[in-house]
Design a binder for these strands. Structure first.
Length: 344
DNA sequence: GCGACAG
DNA sequence: ATCTTGTCGC
């Protein structure tokens, strides 16, 4: 049990949190604080949930041209206060294909768990799941895009998968950096990205692909829950703006805005104990699974899967002519420089 | 012992 | 994740 769970009341005054910024050291200290017992428990939960992951399309919308039955997509994100003890979780629901924001909710919560690579979900998903619960039925999203990984994870259970299973919605993981999973790492991804023109993608392994937006860093796309990698990629491409999928961009923008608003002294909604509520929820999911009420599926072991890095051109090219911008060209050049450093 | 490591 | 300015363009 983390001490923070005992803290009761919401923060009421920004000036009360003028704590010094100790990011690197605080992180290092907390990382060591995470006991081996805790890690084992987390790993066990991830394995249990990974076994419940539905890896094929289980959707209420069609994947055919233009996704005719898809009307609402959601994005989620978390932004942090400078003192590292509070954060704001945001859920946004957008219309499809217009990609206009239909609904938003942002709320502050106390961070009760450190960030440990491979265990992001335990830090961010409880608050996000609680917010997802409050989405009005009429606005319930048909798919959720998560900042992070889905099945592309050492135990097949990244934050997108964790969230998808606990709220029982299709999810897609979109990560800005490459988590090391088996043979896949950032240097492999860098080599693959050099072969990618804007708008193209290439697979990294069975459950992850690298997608190059028109501008900016390539994204790691992996299915979270109730969706295939193919469909996840297809949809991500369809809703990707210039550098990121619109739902995650909106969630990012709005959660940061909420942090700034907080700093400016505005009242912000507060979630009391997302982690404790989430523990009960996960338990409920596991019990349902034991009773056979939940569908289970075979887990793909990323670690043992071979890398297929053949480049595949997009079905519908997003960039017809050479409309590459300065930033895009500069990025390509930086990639070349970085790969030179990386090569013997 | 040191480095790696989604957000 | 967070720390950060000016600047160019619509």
């Amino acid at each position: 049990m983390f001490q923070e769970d005992m803290a009761g009341s919401p923060p009421s005054c920004p000036s009360a949190f003028a704590a010094p910024r100790l990011y690197p050291s605080v992180l290092a200290a907390r990382l060591k604080m995470t006991s081996k017992e805790q890690r084992k428990q987390w790993e066990a939960e991830q394995k249990t949930l990974a076994a419940l992951r539905v890896q094929e399309d289980l959707l209420d919308w069609s994947c055919e041209d233009g996704f005719p039955d898809l009307h609402r997509v959601a994005g989620v994100d978390v932004s942090f206060f400078a003192d590292g003890t509070y954060a704001i979780a945001t859920v946004v629901v957008l219309s499809f294909p217009q990609l206009k924001v239909l609904w938003e909710r942002s709320a502050a919560f106390r961070l009760s768990v450190p960030y440990v690579p491979g265990f992001l979900a335990f830090r961010e998903v409880p608050a996000l799941a609680q917010l997802m619960d409050s989405v009005p039925c009429a606005l319930k999203p048909q798919v959720v895009l998560v900042d992070g990984n889905g099945a592309f994870h050492p135990r097949g259970c990244g934050a997108a998968t964790h969230l998808g299973i606990t709220v029982d919605l299709p999810t897609i993981g979109v990560a800005k950096d490459v988590l090391k999973v088996g043979e896949v790492n950032s240097s492999l991804a860098r080599r693959v990205s050099l072969t990618l023109a804007p708008g193209q993608w290439a697979s990294l392994c069975e459950v992850a692909a690298l997608f190059r937006p028109r501008m900016g860093k390539p994204l790691v796309v992996s299915p979270g829950h109730r969706i295939s990698l193919e469909t996840a990629l297809q949809l991500t491409r369809a809703i990707c703006g210039t550098s990121a999928p619109e739902p995650v961009r909106q969630a990012d923008l709005r959660s940061r805005r909420a942090v700034k608003a907080w700093h400016a002294g505005q009242e912000v909604e507060y979630l009391s104990n997302p982690r404790l509520r989430h523990l009960e929820r996960v338990q409920a999911v596991q019990e349902l699974a034991e009773q056979g009420e939940l569908r289970t599926s075979e887990r793909v072991d990323v670690t043992r899967s071979k890398c297929k890095w053949q480049v595949k051109a997009p079905v519908v090219p997003q960039v017809e002519e050479d409309t590459r911008t300065w930033g895009s060209i500069l990025f390509g050049w930086m990639c070349v420089c970085m790969s030179r450093d990386g090569q013997p």
